[in-house]
Computed example of a mutant assay.
Amino acid sequence: MAYFRRTGPATYHPTDHVSGAWNPDEQHIAPALGLLVHVLERDLAARRDDGLVVARLSFDIWGTVAMAEVGTAVRVLRPGRSIELVEATLSQAHRTVVTLRAWLMRANDTAAIAGTQLAAVPPPDRLPAWDPTTVWPGGFIASAEVRRQQAEPGRAVIWAHTDVPLVDDEPVSNLARATGLFDIVNGMTVRADPREVAFPNLDLTAHLIREPVAGWVGFDATVSFGPSGLGVTSSVLHDERGALGTLSQTLTIRTS
């Protein structure tokens, strides 16, 4: 069973694997973010075939999403021969629930000068398995395999993997599958017990230096809480080939 099954040209229904961590009667937003990348890539493939690649994914989460059918739409905000800004939206019951704005650009061969100072992390087979269902309920968390090396609450290296397809009976890119796991990181090294403190994220932005390879997604993650209800989860993204980019999530911290 996949995370979503298609119900129409632009509509999808979540399966039990999508149920959320804060509330199992709502969707965990992670698979929906992957779904929007899938929809955006399908639209791109239908419009042009000249090799644009994704440089940035910026999601705004407008509110909670019920465990019910969602609709999708894509529009080009800034067309161009070598650079585009594209928006994809997720809606439910005539209400926008997530927007994605993605910068796409033409790929160039820069292998000769490629490099980064982003620190390497231990590969997944060198980290101990960790069961996130000891902290979080919901079908999505139960669907993920997690390995974790925690330095302290709010600071850890995490690897996540799932065998669950993103969309039933449809080929999905490595980027869409990886993006469907990005949002898991906010709950993988908590600073406070989520039964006492809520810290959902309002957004998620990933800047990429290359496309991911298939398999595990890694996070070198730091969770920061400020004194006035603001917080950030910041991560360096990895796959098994090395550093992939960076990710940040704005948190709204609620103690009551």
Rank of each mutant, 00 (worst) to 15 (best):
A112N: 13
L85S: 08
S91Y: 02
A112R: 14
T99P: 03
W103L: 09
L104F: 08
E69K: 00
S82C: 04
G80V: 08
A111R: 11
I113H: 02
A73Q: 10
E69A: 03
A107D: 15
A112E: 12
G71T: 00
V65P: 01
I113M: 10
V76N: 04
R95K: 14
T110N: 10
N108A: 04
A114K: 13
G63V: 06
A88D: 09
T99A: 10
V70Y: 01
M67Q: 07
I83Y: 07
L85T: 02
T99F: 09
T96Y: 00
M67A: 01
V70K: 03
L85G: 08
A114N: 07
L100A: 06
L77F: 08
G115A: 10
V70S: 03
W103E: 09
M67K: 04
L100D: 04
A68I: 05
M67C: 07
A66Y: 00
A93M: 02
R81M: 11
R95P: 01
V76E: 09
L77N: 12
R106I: 10
R106V: 13
L100H: 02
T96C: 11
L77W: 04
A112K: 09
M67Y: 00
I113S: 15
V86G: 00
A112W: 05
T72H: 01
T116N: 13
A114Q: 13
E84F: 03
G80S: 10
T99N: 13
V86N: 06
T116A: 15
T72A: 10
A73R: 15
T72E: 02
T116I: 05
T89K: 06
G71F: 00
A112G: 11
N108R: 15
W103I: 04
V74M: 02
N108P: 01
M67R: 06
A111K: 07
V76I: 09
A102I: 08
L100M: 07
R95V: 11
N108K: 08
D109F: 04
M67T: 07
V86I: 14
V97L: 08
E84L: 11
T116E: 13
L77H: 09
